[in-house]
């Protein structure tokens, strides 16, 4: 079991849904995908590197060999996979505090979902429907989502300065360097080992 790799935590959640409710959830995800402003809270949380929801209809569990028995289920299932920075408690607390409306819209179709506020029954529910990861790999274990965004800002500013340095005068370079410093100064935080969390 390895839910953690460096600064990233892998969460897996599976919840049952009555099949007729699935269509409402599909519509919500369609709207969430189409209206980018609705994703702003998810972006603003800023500690999620990747997340996805997958609806598995009860008759659509993969059967790569037609001779194998088909699953016989009453429920469709909602799978949720998240890759986030920080601890499990921080993540659930932040979700509950910031994204409670969005979370309720997504999970209210799942059986026995208690709502994301208050947080105690919400955490109990997530604990019950979560299962562990057996292998977890990240190409940048020492960087958070914010580190990635910051690094790309630094790279863009560096490329911009570099493009003109060879041809400008020292006075022009001084002004350009000052501008560069102002652009990158808040994006130079150090990546490295994650803190030990108890």
């Amino acid at each position: 079991m390895s839910n953690i790799n460096g600064k990233v935590y892998a969460m897996n959640v599976v919840t049952p849904m009555k099949p007729w409710k699935t269509w409402f959830l599909r519509l919500i995800f369609f709207l969430l995908g189409a209206i980018k402003s609705k994703q702003q809270d998810l972006i603003n949380l800023s500690f999620i590197e990747f997340a996805r929801w997958v609806i598995v209809p009860r008759k659509s569990f993969p059967r790569p060999d037609e001779r194998m028995d088909a699953e016989e289920l009453r429920y469709d299932y909602l799978l949720f996979f998240s890759n986030f920075n920080g601890t499990w408690n921080q993540y659930i607390d932040a979700f509950s505090a910031v994204l409670f409306q969005g979370l309720n819209l997504i999970w209210m179709w799942s059986e026995k979902f208690p709502g994301s506020v208050p947080v105690t029954p919400f955490k109990e529910y997530i604990s019950r429907v979560q299962f562990d990861t057996d292998y977890y790999y990240t190409a940048y274990p020492h960087a958070t989502a914010n580190d990635l965004k910051a690094a790309h800002i630094v790279q863009a500013s560096f490329d911009q300065l570099d493009a003109t340095t060879a041809t400008c005068t020292p006075r022009e370079f001084e002004a350009a360097y000052l501008k560069f410093m102002l652009q990158v100064q808040s994006h130079l935080g150090e990546t490295g080992e994650p803190p030990v969390v108890f």
Binding site: V14, P16, E49, L73, Y75, F131, T133, Y135, T138
Partner: peptide, 18 residues
Amino acid sequence: HLTRLAVMDDVIYVGMPS
């Protein structure tokens, strides 16, 4: 970028009345 593998033993029963 990131990947995971997990064995899902079964679906999860969330309790009555489901």
